[in-house]
Design a binder for these strands. Structure first.
Length: 258
DNA sequence: ATGGTAGCGCTGCTA
């Protein structure tokens, strides 16, 4: 089962890219972030025509997440948001597909270290941690994936002098929160298969970030202890970032053996 | 690194 994650930065704009990528990559499950669409405007009919069922939780202008599953796979037990954590922002959707619990995240960006949005990011990550601890007990076969807005270590940033311990996306507290998720028995699938630096999933639109190779790896897929041995491959597909009018993120994926 | 580009929606916010 091939499971992918893609922050599309507006599904309205990026639907043609998504359809093209589904046709060439043939993923079984796709977690989308930043759909930026109210549910009434979600293109579920177009995606069904492409062979995918959809579940989604969106809002106007900001945020928005969705899980797609290639037919005939069913999508069951859909959960929206973190239980008990009041939040108007649509950042979490979970569902069971093919016996695997899929948790799709659009983690808070945080704007700048010390800002109100940064404090919200840390509170949000704390609530996520506590929820995932119980969710893992209920669903040992779990994949947690999405735009984490955290680069795990120095291999995952183009310039460690810019992306340091006091900078958003790489700060000590953010990385510590990610380590706490790992401590639940979740493993960065990409690092199970690749050691090299410079394998990025996001490049800033500004200052020619992609052209200059100035990126970060912030789109992560975590596999649970129970799934670790089944995770036979992981990768990042750079090609959609080269297409005309691209998202600033490109798809990341893992392959689970049957 | 307080600029830069993109998306939404129509003014400035978010990333």
């Amino acid at each position: 089962m091939k499971i992918a994650s893609w922050n599309v930065n507006s599904l309205n704009v990026r639907l043609p890219h998504l359809e093209a990528w589904l046709a060439q990559a043939m993923p079984d499950v796709v977690a989308l972030q930043e759909t930026k669409l109210e549910d009434a405007r979600f293109p579920d009919a177009e995606l069904a025509a492409a062979g995918y069922r959809s579940v989604f939780a969106g809002q106007k202008t900001y945020n928005g997440v969705a899980i797609l599953a290639r037919m005939p796979l069913a999508i069951d037990d859909v959960q929206i948001g973190i239980p008990g954590f009041e939040d108007e922002q649509k950042r979490v959707i979970a569902a069971t597909v093919g016996g695997v619990r899929i948790v799709d995240l659009y983690v808070v960006n945080g704007q700048s270290v010390g800002s109100d949005k940064y404090e919200y990011k840390l509170r949000w990550l704390e609530a996520l941690h506590d929820w995932l601890a119980s969710e893992l007990r209920a669903h040992p076969d779990m994949v947690v994936l999405g735009d984490f807005n955290i680069a795990p270590d120095e291999r995952d940033v183009h310039d460690p002098k810019v992306w340091h311990d006091g900078h958003i996306l790489t700060s000590t507290a953010e990385r510590a929160a990610l380590q706490r998720l790992y401590a639940l028995g979740l493993h960065d699938a990409f690092r199970l298969h690749h050691d090299e630096a410079g394998m990025f999933s996001w490049w800033d639109y500004r200052q020619g970030g992609f052209r200059r190779g100035n990126g970060l790896r912030i789109d992560l897929t975590l596999v649970s202890d129970a799934l670790r041995a089944r995770c036979v491959a992981a990768g990042i597909d750079r090609e959609p970032r080269t297409w005309e009018r691209p998202s600033d993120h490109t798809p990341a994926w893992v392959e689970l053996a049957d």
